[in-house]
Amino acid sequence: MKRKLKSITTKLSSWSLIIALLVIWQLVSTLGLVPDFMLPSPVNVVLAFIGDFGLLMENLWVTLYEALAGLALAVAASFVLAILMDLSGFLKRSVTPILTFTQTVPTIALAPLLLLWMGYGAAPKIVLVFITCFFPLTISLMGSFAQADGDAIRLLKTMGASRLQVYRYIKLPSALPAFFSGLRIAATYSVVGAVVGEWLGGNAGLGVYMIRVRKSYNFDKMFAVILLISILSIVLIKLVELLEYKAMPWRRKDKKRT
């Protein structure tokens, strides 16, 4: 009982700062220190969120589709490329610098080009998400393939294991922890990537909607979109964590102890 109470109080205290900030923000708006059209109060943001709920949801599905499609493609491609690079030293040496180079190209600069090539539909956004997510996933997979226990691999070989079996029983399972930390980063990138893609042009999606309400100076609605994007990212991270928990039953006991 006491323990439960303690966990509630610690939770409360971790939320208290956020609540305090929200109260200050609300006061600043109600007291008129900052004009409402520039900084809408939290209450107004929530009202805008509720008022626009239908429209927000419509656009949410578009963005979610682009983010998940890009992410799924990135996951699939990262597995394929990481395995190929792990198999061939030549491929690893020649592809790694290219991968690093693609990371130095700002995606914002790339987006208009993609739009030009692929039009206003979902395609350029999916590609943009793919580009942003691909790198952290591939790097995390490659790193853990390379670090796989050499003795364990040798042992498997004395059992007569094929290359494929070495991946199945050693390299892939031992890469899972690193893969999931990569996936967590990629999941947040995917939403941002989709929204940035939509900013630069499109017919639907949270990014498109955001630009529209900004142009009409509906800042309360704009904050509502930002709120929704944050919620979406958090939901995706939580989903990845759930997946991680399900995929790695052997880690559960350890987690409980800490």
Binding site: D149, D151, L155, T158, P173, S174, L176, M248, W250
Partner: peptide
């Protein structure tokens, strides 16, 4: 020729993700 005799190392090399 590997796989004709069994081989065990000092490290138990039990895979942490398998029961």
């Amino acid at each position: 020729k590997a796989g004709r005799v069994s081989y065990m190392l000092q490290k138990d090399l039990l895979l942490p993700y398998r029961t």
